[in-house]
Design a protein around this nucleic acid. Structure first.
Length: 791
DNA sequence: AGGCCTTCGAGTCTT
DNA sequence: TCGAAGGCCT
């Protein structure tokens, strides 16, 4: 099926035929459909290594793109382990990291200051808010979040304000704000994440020599997680894909779970069509899971209609069955899980104890972690929750970075506002507003507008600006570490937090920031993302013509210029390098840092299914598998949404190597209300031979076809529990005392006559699920509801 | 300027 | 229900 590769490179050893074929493909466009656990990263890195090792290309001829810093790092580490090559100098990185590198090199063409700052999502939102206040935009009608989303969405579709289709007065207003936002960013010399991509794309699009240069340079373009690319990223890739080079796209349409943030799986099909891709290779051999787990994943995902089609297989045996557990409440579900985890970790019997690090608890939404955390905490089981605030997103860190940014660029109004009165120095909202008005009238930055202010407030402002300016002078020529220390002292941040009652953590974080800067300088060489690269070996001689638009008045206009016949390699354009400080600030924006540092103790891993993508664990719990939760209520309305939920479930299942638990609860406390849930429809989509119900599989009259709220949680009682651990909630076996039976007709004063579907609980907890013809199925507490049996 | 109270919202995430 | 965020009061 795959032509045996007549290449004896040791790199190709230990690869299966499909992998080998992918790695040693000829220099043509290719799409690799890499299933979960099929060695995707391995193929990607080995492909690069093989191209280099066989002498087909040099390190400078590769462009490899990922989504996350983690993936990029892993690729570099693995490549570095395969070949003695300086991976740092190579163009391997995230979309945004590479765009940043590109824009620093071509900052003039991009109409940006060389030391432009990058706004993260928080900064962007506050920039939008600030702008809206200034222009009296009604926050009721146009929530800042919505506008932020609108702006990002436009950019990700490659649309500048003048290109957005306006269908209503609302649209017109939004576009107007978008335009104002752009002007504000331009004025302040800052770019948001989407802007990094869009600006880089436009420079390539509008400058033939630049584009052609990179096309000549990058013989091979490799993309990881191609199913997650958005419209703009795909367009960006196309800019590099010239006539002579090849695009090697690796992805898995079944793991496309980011449509909600603009990812277009359709890019895969478009790629095949537009690039006339002749080589499509499926990696279906899975090296991760036992076949019960894999069969479950395969059967589940086969329910999706829009697929390129792929089936995972494994050489490992069936393994343990997939265990399914039904709990009466979310608390009981968590309790059961804790017991099960303890058992799994302890080992015993034929089982070996599993490290806690190898146990993952997955859920659909972050809110679900709470109950689980409580249960783990009470049982003193160490755990670690992913998600939440990352290091560089913490308030004290953002404050410190704002001061640093002001040293680098006094016109950064976002940073100015953030710290002008922090620590407090008598500059209230009033004064800031007046300053903003003054700045707007003159058309200058807040920093520059300070001289125009008067009175007491003016004096305070002047003192602040003087402080910043002094600091800038003081820190000139100092090392990054020294700059940081001066800043922390002079700004008063350190003293402020030291004086604060609960400020110890924050002080610690600030100290950690100094360390981060230190290690950035020494280990990272502080330039991977930001500093000019070595001169391109492909370049020619002279000077690159400066286009008129690069003076930077309207970035939305295509840059027009004569083709530059003589031509310098773009990378060489920047003989200037970025200061360590500017480089560090870039680093801080592009790499938001880990969310939790204490990796010391072995701990159970808690995370959403989304953040589990790409990871694997010996033992996985997927919890809260209930209609409305997983699949989530908000995705259930349309078919595409449901398919994405199913892919999400597919991702969840395929995380497990050896043991997989799926659980759900009949009731769950959500938004302060008890919700009665039906088990997820996904259970119906699993192969019976591969699963084992730890609790009796409940009857389901028509299953999910009846829709939400119509399911039939099982009656509990009198069954043999298979689960290893003893049940935290004792199984109730006593006879009911309320005199109702399943199937009985009852009368309710409000809902009328109905049929008892299910009964459960005892005494005051006793409740019944009753089907009323007019009002649908209701759960009623028998101690409250007035029910009379009807004949 | 800082603390208290009301209000709102509640999905998944990376750069 | 719970948390954050914004407004209002002192």
């Amino acid at each position: 099926m795959f032509p045996e590769v007549a290449d004896s490179s040791p790199l190709l050893q230990n690869l299966n035929p499909e992998q080998r074929a992918a790695v040693a493909l000829p220099n043509e466009h290719a799409l690799i459909l890499a299933g979960a656990g099929s060695g995707k990263t391995r193929v990607l890195t080995t492909r690069i290594a093989w191209l280099l090792a066989t002498g087909q290309i040099g390190p400078g001829n590769v462009l490899a793109v990922t989504f996350t810093n983690k993936a990029a790092k892993e690729m570099m580490t693995r490549l570095g382990a395969m070949l003695p090559v300086n991976v740092r100098g190579m163009w391997i990185g995230t979309f945004h990291g590479l765009c940043n590198r590109f824009l620093r090199a071509h900052y003039k063409l991009a109409a940006l200051p060389q030391a432009f700052q990058i706004l993260d999502t928080q900064d962007q939102l506050s920039a939008v808010k600030r702008l809206m206040k200034q222009h009296n935009v009604d926050e009721e009608r146009f929530p800042a979040k919505e506008l932020q989303w609108f702006i990002a969405g436009c950019k990700e579709d490659g649309l500048r304000p003048n290109m957005v289709e306006v269908k209503s007065e609302e649209d017109r207003r939004k576009v107007e704000i978008y335009q104002l936002y752009e002007e504000q960013c331009q004025r302040e010399g800052v770019v948001d994440f989407a802007e990094l991509m869009l600006r880089a794309y436009e420079v390539l699009r509008d400058n033939d020599p630049i584009r052609e240069h990179y096309q000549r340079r990058f013989h091979h373009i490799l993309i990881d997680e191609f199913q997650d690319t958005n419209k703009l990223q795909y367009a960006w890739i196309k800019m590099f894909a010239g006539p002579g080079n090849s695009v090697f796209a690796v992805g898995d349409d079944d793991q496309s779970i980011y449509a909600f943030r603009g990812a277009r799986v359709g890019n895969m099909a478009d790629f095949v069509r537009e690039f006339s891709v002749r080589h499509q290779i499926k990696l279906e051999q899975n090296y991760r899971s036992y076949s019960n787990i894999l069969d479950s994943a395969n059967q589940l995902i086969s329910n999706n209609k829009t697929r390129l089609g792929k089936n995972l297989r494994t050489d490992q045996g069936a393994g343990e069955p997939v265990r399914i557990y039904e709990a009466p409440t979310d608390m009981a579900e968590a309790q059961w899980m804790v017991e099960e985890i303890r058992h799994v970790v302890r080992g015993g019997g034929p089982d070996e104890g599993v490290s806690r690090n190898e146990v993952a608890v997955l859920y659909r939404s972050n809110a679900q972690s709470r109950v689980i955390e409580t249960a783990l905490f009470n049982a003193a089981v160490p755990y670690r929750v992913y998600g939440g605030l990352r290091f560089f997103e913490r308030a004290e860190i953002k404050h410190a970075l704002s001061y640093l940014r002001l040293l680098e660029n006094p016109n950064d109004d976002t940073s100015f506002i953030r710290v002008v009165n922090f620590p407090a120095r008598g500059i209230g909202a009033r004064s800031v507003e007046q300053l903003q008005d003054a700045a707007r009238t003159v058309g200058c930055s807040l920093h520059d507008a300070v001289t125009a202010t008067t009175g007491k407030a003016g004096a305070n402002l002047a003192a602040f600006v003087a402080k910043i300016d002094t600091m800038r002078a003081q820190t000139e020529g100092l090392t990054l570490r020294e700059i940081m220390e001066v800043m922390l002292q002079q700004s008063g941040l350190l003293d402020h937090y030291k004086a604060e009652r609960d400020g110890a953590d924050r002080v610690e974080n600030l100290e950690e920031l100094v360390n981060a800067a230190e290690s950035f300088v020494t280990q990272e060489g502080f330039g991977r993302d930001a500093v000019a690269l070595p001169v391109d070996e492909l370049g020619g001689g002279a000077i690159l013509r400066q286009s008129p638009a690069s003076q930077g008045l309207d970035p939305s206009l295509p840059e027009v210029h004569e083709p530059a016949p003589d031509y310098v390699p773009p990378d060489a354009e920047t003989g200037e390098t970025l200061s360590p400080l500017a480089a560090f600030l870039t680093h801080a924006a592009l790499e938001s840092g880990d969310n939790q540092a204490n990796a010391g103790q072995e701990a159970v891993q808690l995370m959403t299914v989304h953040s589990a993508k790409g990871l694997e664990f010996d033992c996985v719990f997927v919890t809260g598998l209930e209609e409305g939760l997983f699949p989530s209520e908000r995705s259930m309305s349309d078919y595409e949404g449901l398919e994405e939920e199913r892919r999400l479930m597919y991702v969840a299942i395929t995380r497990a190597r050896k043991r997989l638990y799926l659980s759900y609860s009949q009731t769950r406390l959500l938004h302060g209300q008890t919700r009665y849930n039906v088990k997820s429809r996904f259970f119906e989509e699993l192969p019976e031979h591969a699963v084992k119900w730890l609790t009796p599989k409940n009857q389901n009259f028509g299953g999910s076809a009846f829709g939400y709220g119509m399911g039939y949680p099982s009656t509990r009682g009198g069954y043999q529990r298979e689960s290893i651990a003893s049940p935290p909630v004792p199984v109730q076996k006593a006879e009911p005392t309320h005199g109702l039976r399943q199937g009985m007709k009852v009368f309710h004063t409000k809902f009328g006559e109905g049929t008892v579907l299910t009964l459960e609980g005892q005494g005051l907890d006793a409740r019944a699920h009753i089907q009323f013809p007019r009002h649908g199925a209701k759960w009623l507490a028998l101690s409250v509801a007035k029910l009379t049996p009807v004949n």
